[in-house]
Amino acid sequence: MGADKIRIIDGRALPIRGDDMDTDRIMPARFLKSITFDGLEQHVFEDDRLEAKRSGHVHPFDDPKFQGASILLADRNFGAGSSREHAPQGLHRWGIRAVVAQSFAEIFFGNSLMIGLACVTAPAKDVEALMSLVNRDPQATLAIDLQARTCQASGLTIAIAIPDHVRDTLLTGAWDTTGLLLDRYEEVNAVSAKLPYLNGFTN
C-alpha cells in the first residue's frame, strides 16, 4: 500500500501541559459531523484555545512562536477517552508528526500508529527538560531517531521508549495494516470455520 518509512522525525516542538488530556479536548465532538477528515487541522484544541483567548492567554497552538512545529510534547495519559481518530487526524493534518509524552491512552496510541503519527514515551524529568528547552528557545530543533530510540535537542540527548513492533512498523512503512490482514486470507477462513457461533452451534 506504499506507506512511507519513518525513521527520523525532526523539527521544532510545542508543549501541551496537563495529564489525562482527552480526545474531546483535542477535537471537540461537533467537528466529528463531517464525513471526511478534511479541515480538522483548524479545530485542534479549539475550545481550549477559545478559553485561553477569553482569559487573555495564548494557547500553544495559537502562539506564533510554535507555528510550524512538528513535535508535540505532553504529560501523562495523553489522548484519553473517546476513540475518535479525528483527534490524531487533526494533529497530523496540523503538521504534528510525533508526540513525546510520559504515557498515552491506548486507543489514541493505536489510532496514531495507523496514520503514521509516531507516539513515543519518555520519563517525566526528560519531558520536563524538553518542555523547558522549547519554552526557552522555541526555535530549538528536536530530532527523534526511532532506530536509535533517542531524542536529541541542543546538546541534550534523551532516551525514548517505543514498543518494538511499533518501531518496526514505522521503520518498515508497514503501518498501513489492511494489506497485511488481507494477505493469506485462507488462514482467516480456517479460524472462522472453527467458531461454533458462526456455525449455528451445530457441532
Binding site: S83, R84, E85, H86, P88, I107, G110, N111, M114, I115, P163, H165, T177, T178, L180, L181, L182, Y185, V188, S192
Partner: peptide
C-alpha cells in the same frame, strides 16, 4: 474492542484486527 476509523476500515475489509 473500541477502535478508530482506520481500524474500522481494517475490520470492514478483512474482519480482522492487528492488535497487541
Amino acid at each position: 474492542f473500541g477502535i478508530g476509523t482506520s481500524q474500522v476500515r481494517d475490520v470492514l475489509a478483512s474482519q480482522c484486527l492487528a492488535i497487541e
